[in-house]
Design a protein around this nucleic acid. Structure first.
Lengths: 153, 153
DNA sequence: GCCATTAGTGCAATTGTGTTGCAATATTCG
DNA sequence: CGAATATTGCAACACAATTGCACTAATGGC
């Protein structure tokens, strides 16, 4: 993993005012280096072996990152939560894409306004989530032969 | 459970051309009688004890109903799948609401067009899913005292 | 109506993700 | 440095959902 991501991660963790620990820095650095949303298992796999972070700690750190607005959590429809570093680009509300074959999740820049939806009386809206389902480039059938490795569940 | 729902369910199952079995009919009847999307556990609980359907069979029947367009599946962000009978009202694409407190899911009629979102090259869009998160009438705090039972996870 | 075919079911065991309790550790602040 | 306490690691657990396989029962031809 690139050391510059670790530097960025250290700074981000420090900026929260909470304690700066190796698990927090390393997990956030992994997210910074990721090109897409990662599952808990993927984060764990990408942690350098030297880092030696416990499974449960990874869960708790991810949750902590979300609470501190350093990451955001995406619930796909495969019952797996994925996490993204909260970059400028994804600070506000935005849409997500999930591949219905391999499960890959990426963030999308949203163009256009969210449609208005009427809620029943007494209901209170907090957040709107827009998810596009489809096939990612690596999973589109009959496409030109690709060298992209398919990451299946 | 109302017997008329069972009649409707029998007809719907028969219309698929596949075998008409008690588990299929009873599960679909439960969905027909439901006022909101039900989890697997809720479906099981609402099955009359006389029906005696195995847990696993309920899972498989729900999946079968979805494959045959008699029901549709909603993935909330609490890692639990919920199922709705596919009625006319919900035949096409529509939005969902999920209560962030009790987890309740209902279908919404969507007003207005879906916003256009650009996918990366090579990606193929199949479906757009719009979910509103918020609080349902029973979970809104400080509301006038309610007699509504709260259904918590 | 009866029988053969095979789709569908039931049961047991397993997977995978995520959570909880608690003792041990390590960060921060004076 | 040394105390206070936020975090971590470990073990056990919770729970939805899945898989393998033998058994049962719905359907279609006779």
């Amino acid at each position: 993993m690139a050391t510059d991501k670790i530097g960025l991660a250290e700074e981000a963790v420090r900026s929260t005012g909470a304690r700066m620990t190796r698990p927090r820095v390393m997990v956030l650095a992994v997210l910074f280096a990721a090109e897409r949303a990662l599952t808990h298992a993927e984060v764990e796999a990408r942690l350098p072996r030297a880092a030696e972070v416990d499974r449960v700690t990874v869960y708790r750190v991810l949750e902590w990152l979300v609470d501190n607005h350093l990451a955001h959590k995406i619930a796909g429809d495969d019952r797996v939560r994925r996490f993204n570093a909260a970059s400028h680009a994804h600070a506000g509300p935005h849409a997500h894409f999930q591949c219905s074959d391999c499960g890959e999740v990426i963030c999308l820049e949203e163009a256009g306004a969210k449609p208005a939806v009427k809620l029943p009386v007494g209901y209170k809206q907090q957040q709107v989530e827009l998810t596009i389902k489809g096939l990612c480039a690596g999973c589109v059938p009959a496409s030109k032969p690709r060298t992209v490795a398919r990451h299946h569940h």
